[in-house]
Design a protein around this nucleic acid. Sequence first.
DNA 1: TATTGACTTGGAGTTAACTCCAAGTTGTAG
DNA 2: CTACAACTTGGAGTTAACTCCAAGTCAATA
Lengths: 129, 129
Amino acid sequence: MTIKEVCEKFDITPDTLRYYERVGVIPEVHRTKGGIRDFTDEDVAWVENAICMRSAGVPVEMLIEYVRLYQEGDGTFQARRDVLEEARQEVQKNIEKYQATLDRLNFKISRYDVAIKTGVLSWDDCKEE
Amino acid sequence: MTIKEVCEKFDITPDTLRYYERVGVIPEVHRTKGGIRDFTDEDVAWVENAICMRSAGVPVEMLIEYVRLYQEGDGTFQARRDVLEEARQEVQKNIEKYQATLDRLNFKISRYDVAIKTGVLSWDDCKEE
DNA sequence: TATTGACTTGGAGTTAACTCCAAGTTGTAG
DNA sequence: CTACAACTTGGAGTTAACTCCAAGTCAATA
């Protein structure tokens, strides 16, 4: 699979993919004799994983560490689990924060729905608009 | 309320607060005769709101736009609602992405739990570690 | 085989959101 | 009144994560 195809599949740019490989967010990608990237299914799976993790704000640094441990071999199961667990807690915490913000937004929007109808923004117990 | 007290209340730095005021993430803060910030309850409420929104990744740009509309007065209810709605959709979308990543992390972690016990990382139907 | 378009690299540039700094001002404690 | 810590400003610097660029290489087509 060419870099272009992978980029289309995941809707990212070649620059981002090359950057991911360069810094180690994904392991080195398989190449043709000429040196051109030719993604195997496993390469693609790494890309998919990286994009999923990044989309939830897992830092590049953490993904690099995970790949590094992976390449070190079977002695790093626990260390890899630890990295994943740290990521998990971060993501979990963020979901909670995001949910709180979503609630606040829903409340504010509902106040504006009333305001748009009545021409007056109710104050209730909240101080700011 | 001094800048220090507000910072302690929300666990942020004075630099961040001053930056928020400077770029318009919050409206201009009340001052003493000497020109030193003296946050009213309303100022603090704006800070709280900004921090909540930022903690869910709502861009500074969007908060600035909201404050700008707020200062324009009662003719901007609909426009303000639109900004909030856009933010809401972003946050909602992110929660979904984050949840998908959380699921993936949980799956990977459970595989590592097995691997740590058995010494072998099961491959099942997934290609990457 | 010549052209053309996609690929390669190393390195520089960009963006959002802070974060830090220097130089000066305010206000409180002694 | 004098220290002196905490405040002020405008502007420069930092960080993470890309994003762009120039100069060169590869490969499919005419």
